[in-house]
Write a protein that binds this DNA or RNA. Structure first.
Lengths: 351, 351
DNA sequence: TCAAAATTTGAAATCGGTTTCTTTTTTTTA
DNA sequence: TAAAAAAAAGAAACCGATTTCAAATTTTGA
């Protein structure tokens, strides 16, 4: 093969800069960190040399010496799900502003993978870990994972989007109850009373909370709760929701509105409804969670709950950094969602 | 606030392990790296202690000492685009298998950001960088970026998915010509002759190549090239393609097939076509690039070009690691795409 | 059984920064 | 102008691994 070999070349060190500037390494370091005074003319000279070679101090050496890597580990269930991608990008931006870099790991729904990744992040000596999805979203916490987190916790603070019983993790949650309040207020306001809830798994904290709130609000509005309108699919994908919705419609159960547990599920639900010959929203209204770009791509565009990703990501990172720097932070914080109304929701049809 | 402060706790070191095992740190290190023999009974004892405390060696210290961080930096245009997310996850999996961890940066289409990120990755002393999207996809390479890459190249090998003139970057490309061959073979085989190409920007290498090949293949099939059927939108999003497709249809130009430059664009095109009262694929066939889950979510499901993400990601990472380890690798490698036929493509309607 | 060879092991240097502790230089003030 | 105070800068230790080199131990074989 017409192979090519990468040239070997070592990067400059602080000593190279020091030599060229005729000062000691300590002085260069002081310029780099700004931790102490350096005579202006020397400082200028050193900065010029740094600039000239575009010198960047070795982060490993720096991190070793001050035991701070300036790295934040992020464990997400799967960035291919735009929900996680949105949160991730928001985190990256926020981290960048604070001088931190992010290390992303996708657990892909495998608890064993989460463990390995957390250990790997520890090995990299990340200053903090943010975890979203996976074990930290389960209603019943995974004992093994709890143990690992606890054994690491003194060294690595963790910020999670759900909960992990028996740990001291910082929690930044989206107010799940509030999301359901917004959706049902919207739907009931439009005259809907037969409202289905499709997708997800009830042993996921947020899904469970949503379902609980759903029942509560129906009751408060004197609407009978019909168990057959809640469809737990086990997944958060389109296929599961599609099958589930097909099942419901095939059984002759026709709600006037459907709440999809996320945008992926909404895609499957929309397909099922259209294939059954119903119009959206004339016959059936569809609303969803996450407000990813999918809401914009489907026909009709979806009414969806927005999590305000920018502030969500910012809060996650700020909490992580504060914890890393051993500043005081509330153990639990909540982000307020909003409702974005688009084409897929309309008044309930007359019976 | 009911604030909480993170406990301070230092992680174990190799010296702690050595002390407890009654050996020197060097011996522990030898067990960790497997670089030299250690008497079996000692090795066993040391491993037990490591296991007992779940000790993980400090990656910064290790990296400093052997000048290998075992980190691969990835600069992507935007993981919120599922195309990049798919490639990224494939890279992460491949990297993990080789013992590397990935650092993800989203350049979000800003060249200044790319520069900063590349410098940051250098600061972290990543062993290699993989870049997809942004400057490395431009037909005309950005001089400033080329300079930066060249100045860093001795220290950090780069693998890119496009090209960067004047650099020695390793290239792993998707065979763009082949993608167009597959699509046109499919469409022409179905009887289509009025085939539009919508979305993207011609100063992006892959898009340019696709358009070139498009003309070539039409000519080869004695089909007149109609310039008004190529619509450069400047973007790779749904909105741009939607506007563009609306423009085309409103002008009374009605192709029987439309090639969308990516799945996002396809979403916009589908919407436009449906809103104009045409059926897909009865009246107009739509095919797209990327084969992300979006193809599955739209109604109808999209026929799309698949890049075989797993092998693409694997090749990117293997090239990066080989370059990092100064092994010989071909400068240019290509990945072969395939066509996935779904509901959105059908025979050309009779005139 | 004992010297020679082979294998293990530990002490110390090293990687490239930061930081403490002195020493030197500069500035202030009497 | 000289002494005291303040500021700047260098030498050296340190962070936690790996690795070289030399010393100690074990194994081999005559």
């Amino acid at each position: 093969m017409d192979g090519v070999k990468q040239p070997e070349e070592k990067a400059l060190t602080i000593y190279d800069i020091a030599r060229e500037a005729g000062v000691s390494a300590a002085t260069v370091s002081r310029v780099l960190t700004g931790s102490a005074n350096v005579r202006p003319e020397k400082k200028k000279r050193i900065l010029e040399i740094i600039e000239k070679y575009n010198f960047k101090p070795n982060a490993m050496a720096r991190g070793l010496s001050d035991t701070r890597s300036k790295l934040i580990g992020i464990i997400a269930a799967d960035v291919r799900n735009p929900y996680y991608a949105q949160v991730f990008v928001a985190c990256e931006l926020a981290a960048w502003k604070l001088g931190y870099t992010v290390l992303l790991c996708n657990s892909l729904g495998q608890p064993s993978q989460e463990k390995k990744q957390l250990e790997k992040l520890h090995e990299q000596r990340v200053d903090a870990v943010i975890q979203m999805g996976g074990s930290v979203d389960d209603l019943v916490s995974n004992v093994e994972y709890v143990e690992l987190v606890n054994s690491l916790f003194g060294a690595i603070p963790m910020v999670i989007t759900g909960k992990l019983d028996g740990t001291q993790c910082y929690q930044v949650q989206i107010d799940a109850m509030k999301t359901m309040d917004l959706l049902l207020e919207h739907l009931i306001g439009l005259g809907h009373r037969d409202i289905a809830l499709v997708g997800g798994r009830m042993n996921v904290l947020s899904t469970f909370e949503k379902a609980q709130r759903y029942k509560q609000i129906l009751q408060r509005n004197q609407i009978d709760f019909r168990p057959e309108l809640i469809r737990e699919t086990g997944f958060y994908d389109a296929a599961g929701a599609y099958d589930s919705m097909n099942g419901m419609l095939d059984q002759g159960i026709t709600p006037t509105a459907v709440i999809a547990i996320n945008d992926f599920s909404a895609a499957g639900i929309v397909r099922s409804i259209l294939e059954h010959g119903y119009g959206i929203p004339q016959d059936i209204t569809v609303v969803s969670y996450d407000n990813t770009y999918i809401t914009d791509h489907l026909v009709p565009k979806l009414t969806s709950i927005d999590y305000n990703y920018e502030s969500f990501g910012t809060l996650l990172v700020e909490t992580a950094v504060a914890a890393a720097e051993r500043r005081e932070m509330p153990r639990l914080q909540r982000v307020t969602p909003t409702l974005v109304v688009r084409e897929s929701s309309g008044p309930a049809p007359r019976k």
